[in-house]
Each structure stands twice: as structure tokens, then as C-alpha cells.
Design a protein around this nucleic acid. Structure first.
Lengths: 135, 135
DNA sequence: TTACGCTATGTAATAGTATAACATTACAGT
DNA sequence: ACTGTAATGTTATACTATTACATAGCGTAA
């Protein structure tokens, strides 16, 4: 449920944080991002958190609440912005982002019925991805 | 997605933590629980976290990932155990627990299709409850 | 130009959340 | 009694996030 306008111009810090997340193969905690950007001059958590706040607001990054970590959005710029859902593999740590209009539609319908004014939703699945299942 | 057997017997610490959450009118952080149990002899966070782990496993307590807090389950004992979803009011902090078979069914169906072996799900809505909306 | 407002930044200190490690106790089953 | 398992107590530490305050850049209206 991002408020993403069109492609925003990123500041230097925002671009560095976004780049670190894009290069990562999975979610990173804010402190992991910090460690990867020390060579670029990052010194304090707040530099990361401030950039993350903006990137999340732009819809370029998602926060995974159940992991206290962040991932780059896997959708192309300007693409349809159903609120995202995530499947997190407890074995390999991989995250699959998906957007299912039926699911979010059902949640919106529930909110409507309950007169709950919806501003955001968190949908995170836990389990094992196909590759990490033995059988 | 609790593994709740039938009504488990709680240890003293578990019962105290559960009681604190039941008495609370909303979610409590682990440290808030700790503060409320100091008179009962609680001294360290681990006493709370260990009890919470069990209570969550029993299905008697839910963890709200987007709040880093815990609430007592609002269902009667032994009641049907669809994975719970939550609507969290950003104004009053109130939490409404609901279970919608269509929503969880759709998520299970997505997992099935993606060969994702599901062990748990987090569904949390944010916004304003009916009472907190002005107009 | 200067003055103002707004956003972004740098830095240090602190608050809040969660776990590791180790010692001890309780109790059921053999 | 011996063993295995679960629960507990306690200290220390790790991890996550924000407050507070100082500084710098930039656009715009006077």
C-alpha cells in the first residue's frame, strides 16, 4: 500500500541503500545494510533507517515485519501496486514477493464490512520453498 | 497456525503471563508484561519470553509482528483454529482479531500452487477502527 | 542578496526488543 | 537411585530502532 508517485529521484544515501538491497540475494537487516555501506562512508544506523523510510514510502523497498528486515521490491518500476505479500523460506531465507488481487480484495472487503479504514497491510507466509523440501 | 492440543496446563510463569495479557485491554510488549509481573517476582525478560513462546505455541497468545507485541487470543478454548488475522488501530491501539476462511484459504491455495510448504502466516491490517474515524 | 522554509545529512547517545550461556530445580519413568 | 526432559533463575550481551541536536543544501519570496 505504497504512496509511490512516479519514479522518484533518490538522494545519494537512498540510492546506496537501495543498491545494497538490489544486489543482495535476500532480505537484509538495517544493520547488515549499514555494514555493507561502511566503505561508502556510512557510519550510523540512522543513515540507513532514514533512507529505508523513504524507500519504503516510494514503494521501492518492502519491510518484512516478521524478520525485521528489508527487501528491494521485485516489481518493475511503475508496475501495478497491489499491496505485496511475501513467502519466506525458513530454510534458505529466500523471499518470494507476490501480489494477489483476490487476497487483498478479500482483506479490503473485511475492512469495509468492519468499517475499518485501511492504510496498510502485512501478509507474510512462513514455510519451506519448493527447493528446500526434501521429498 | 498453532499446534494447540487441547487445553494445556500452564506453569506458574505461563499462567502469570497469560493472565497479564488477558487483563490488558490491548497488546503488550514483552517488557510491558515484565513490568506488570515484577510484584509476582519476575525479574528478567527471559522469564517472559519463555512463557510467551509456549503460550504462542499453545495458541493462547498471538504475536503481532508489526508491533513487536503480544495479545491474548480472543477465541474460546478449543475453538476452530483458522490462522488469525488482525486489524490494528493506529489511533487507539486496539486490536480486532478475526479469522476468515476465504482469506486463509486463498493463501493456502497460493502456497499450494507455488509448492511452498506452509507452516505459518502473518496477516495484519493497519488503519483506523470505526470508533476512531471522525466523519 | 538575504531571509526563510524545507529536506537531507552527520553524529552521539539512548531506548526498546530478544537471545546466549550457564547454573539450578523439579519431576516422570525406569 | 539414575536418567532424561522441561522449566526456572540470573547475568550478560546482541540486535533493532529512535531521540536529540548540530549542520548543510537548495528553492523561493521579499
Amino acid at each position: 500500500m505504497s504512496v509511490a508517485g512516479k519514479a522518484p529521484e533518490l538522494t545519494r544515501n537512498q540510492a546506496l541503500v537501495h543498491g545494497a538491497l538490489v544486489r543482495a540475494d535476500g532480505p537484509l537487516s538495517a544493520y547488515e545494510v549499514l555494514d555493507r555501506l561502511r566503505e561508502q562512508g556510512f557510519k550510523a544506523p540512522l543513515q540507513v533507517y532514514r533512507a529505508l523510510d523513504k524507500l519504503v514510502a516510494f514503494g521501492l523497498v518492502h519491510r518484512l515485519e516478521s524478520l525485521n528486515a528489508f527487501v528491494a521490491c521485485s516489481h518493475a518500476e511503475g508496475e501495478t501496486e497491489e499491496p505485496a505479500a511475501f513467502a519466506i523460506c525458513d530454510s534458505c531465507g529466500g523471499v518470494t514477493e507476490f501480489a494477489d488481487a483476490r487476497i487483498t480484495g478479500d482483506l479490503k472487503a473485511w475492512a469495509e464490512t468492519d468499517r475499518f479504514s485501511l492504510t496498510g497491510m502485512t501478509i507474510e507466509l512462513r514455510g519451506l520453498c519448493a527447493a528446500c523440501q526434501t521429498g
